[in-house]
Design a binder for these strands. Structure first.
Length: 151
DNA sequence: GCCAACGTTGGC
DNA sequence: GCCAACGTTGGC
């Protein structure tokens, strides 16, 4: 089982929205690396930090679990959707996504707090210019955050 | 709102 | 297949 960090802009979809929905389809990912993490590596039961980005303050606000393996993103076939992909066909979809299940909310662990800890220095989210919306989290980093920074 | 960093596109 | 131009992300 692996660990992940998944970004969402709270204006678009927040941890509170997921707490209400319980399960959501993680649609709209349009980056090949992020897609491949979902399609090729995510397994049922994998856990992920739910991260609020592009807000003040950005940070980890919850924990979720992969509840359904990757399947084609329906929004790519919808001409009216912002996520429409003209090159995709039903036989050869471009974009995939998993479903994630709400596990819990946590008191925010701000990005600024993550930066303070040497144990987390290699986290993808902390690297300069990082924009990837889904990133793997090392099990040791996961343990550090859940044991030391979340209470 | 600014802007650095990055991914993607498309002309050649 | 290179690479400049462009669009997007996301912290600040």
């Amino acid at each position: 089982m692996r660990y992940w960090l998944m970004k969402s802009e709270p204006d678009a979809y927040s941890i509170d929205a997921l707490a209400k929905d319980k399960v959501t389809a993680w649609t709209g990912v349009r980056n090949f690396q992020a897609r491949n993490f979902m399609k090729e590596q995510m397994a049922l039961g994998d856990q992920a930090f739910f991260y609020h980005s592009n807000c003040n303050p950005p940070g980890i606000v919850g924990i979720v679990e992969v509840a359904k393996l990757a399947y084609p993103d329906a929004t790519q076939f919808d001409k009216k959707s912002d996520y429409f992909e003209p090159k995709a066909t039903r036989d050869k979809p471009y974009w995939y996504h998993v479903d994630v299940k709400f596990l819990c909310k946590v008191p925010i662990v701000p990005l600024e707090e993550l930066r303070k800890h040497k144990a987390l220095a290699n986290m993808r989210i902390l690297q300069r210019g990082n924009r990837l919306s889904i990133t793997p989290v090392d099990p040791r980093e996961w343990a550090f955050i859940t044991e030391k920074l979340i209470r």
